[in-house]
Amino acid sequence: MTEHDALPDDTPAGADFAPGDADWRATLVATPADWDAAVDLRMAVFVDEQGVPEGLELDEHDEEPLDSAVDHVLVRDRDGDAVAVARLRAVDAGEYGALAPGTDRLAKVERVAVDRHRRGGGWGARAMRAVESRARERGLPEAVLHAQTHAAGFYERLGYAVDDAVGAFDEDGIEHVRMRRRL
């Protein structure tokens, strides 16, 4: 199975990954309007704020956003405004290594972005809880991500640990570290 192969999935469109008592929603991108909101957030954060070239921000994993095995989780506030986004891919554990022996596939969390005016309000943590919930639903027992070094502390507070075997590396002109955790 490759990362582009669909996994068995009976998640209904619009399923909410937020806790039942939450005043926010976290859903898979399922409509063109959802996709536009996700892209707007990613472009604002990565391209406009951080200077990542637009051609690098939208990549091959974004080509069929409404019809692929790549999940895009969109977090909205109580008013329905898009506040945060994250992307989830199932990847071969051999490519990243696994914490548990016998693990074949991992959750690769990518493109986590929060609207600049909403940072510090827990929206990034909400996006991560939602994407981790989706990963568990897909049967992925571990998550790996590439964190910008300035954001590593945020992910550590969520239970991620730096993969010291990899060290810091450049990704799109920004220093990153690989981090991981069991789900």
Rank of each mutant, 00 (worst) to 15 (best):
G139V: 10
A130R: 00
A93Y: 04
A44V: 06
H72W: 07
E95F: 07
D23I: 09
E63A: 15
A107Q: 01
R178N: 07
S133Y: 04
P101M: 12
V112G: 01
A15C: 12
E110A: 14
A84P: 03
F46N: 00
R78C: 13
R119L: 09
L74F: 06
V114I: 07
D81N: 13
G94L: 11
V47W: 01
D62R: 13
E63M: 14
R87C: 01
D67T: 08
L158E: 03
A86N: 03
M43K: 10
A93L: 07
V144K: 00
R111Y: 08
R87T: 00
Y160M: 08
V177I: 11
D59G: 13
A90G: 04
G167A: 06
V91A: 04
A165F: 05
P32C: 10
V47Y: 01
R118N: 03
A26I: 04
D5V: 12
R116Y: 10
R129E: 07
L41M: 10
R105C: 04
A69C: 14
D36A: 13
D16Q: 08
G80L: 10
R182W: 05
R178D: 05
R25W: 06
R118T: 02
Y96E: 11
S68A: 11
G97T: 10
T103F: 03
W35P: 05
V166S: 05
P12S: 13
P32Y: 09
D170E: 15
E110Q: 15
A113S: 14
F46W: 06
A33P: 11
D164R: 15
R78F: 06
L41K: 03
V144N: 00
D67Q: 11
A125E: 09
V162P: 01
